[in-house]
């Protein structure tokens, strides 16, 4: 639940600065196109620690209701990660309700050593993102 209008949330979700601020381990975030971003993210997945150069695309964009976030993360020698998050925004009395669902697969060393951990890490990172994202609104309001 975010204390802002759906349109405000929608704009914030597409700001590279805000995205970088809210993604754990995100070192760079650049908008390549309207619906495409490039990010550099450090992730620890069990015994594998890797820096991912990720292309993030927003697909199936229905402004300001929903979109699918497709992440294609290249971790060099550690392997690849491919993830999708379906995000939807519903207006509610006190603001906007944000819900999401995460799926994904990993390959290479990540799959050999970390596949059991992958979904939990992906869920944790996503949860952390939206928690930070939501907390941001609280901070903005209280400031």
């Amino acid at each position: 639940m975010i204390p802002a209008t759906r349109e405000e949330v929608w704009v914030a979700l597409r700001s590279p600065e805000i995205l970088q601020e809210c993604i754990d381990g995100c070192e760079e975030m650049t908008a390549l196109d309207t619906n495409e971003y490039e990010a550099l993210v450090r992730v620890k997945l069990g015994p594998v620690r890797a820096k991912f150069r990720s292309i993030i695309r927003m697909l199936n964009v229905v402004a300001p209701e929903s979109y699918t976030l497709a992440v294609n993360a290249r971790g060099g020698n550690a392997g690849f990660g491919i993830g999708q998050a379906h995000v939807s925004l519903m207006p509610s009395e006190s603001g906007t309700t944000l819900s999401y669902e995460v799926t994904g697969t990993v390959s290479g060393k990540l799959a050999q050593l970390g596949s059991r951990l992958f979904l939990s890490v992906a869920n944790k990172m996503t949860a952390s993102f939206f928690n930070k994202f939501c907390a941001r609104w609280d901070n903005t309001r209280s400031a």
């Binding site: 990993v106 390959s107 290479g108 060393k109 799959a111 050999q112 596949s115 059991r116």
Partner: peptide
């Protein structure tokens, strides 16, 4: 190996 050809048993943990 899983259906994508990823080796799931790649360590002594698996």
């Amino acid at each position: 190996y899983d259906a994508d050809g990823q080796l799931l048993t790649g360590s002594y943990m698996d």
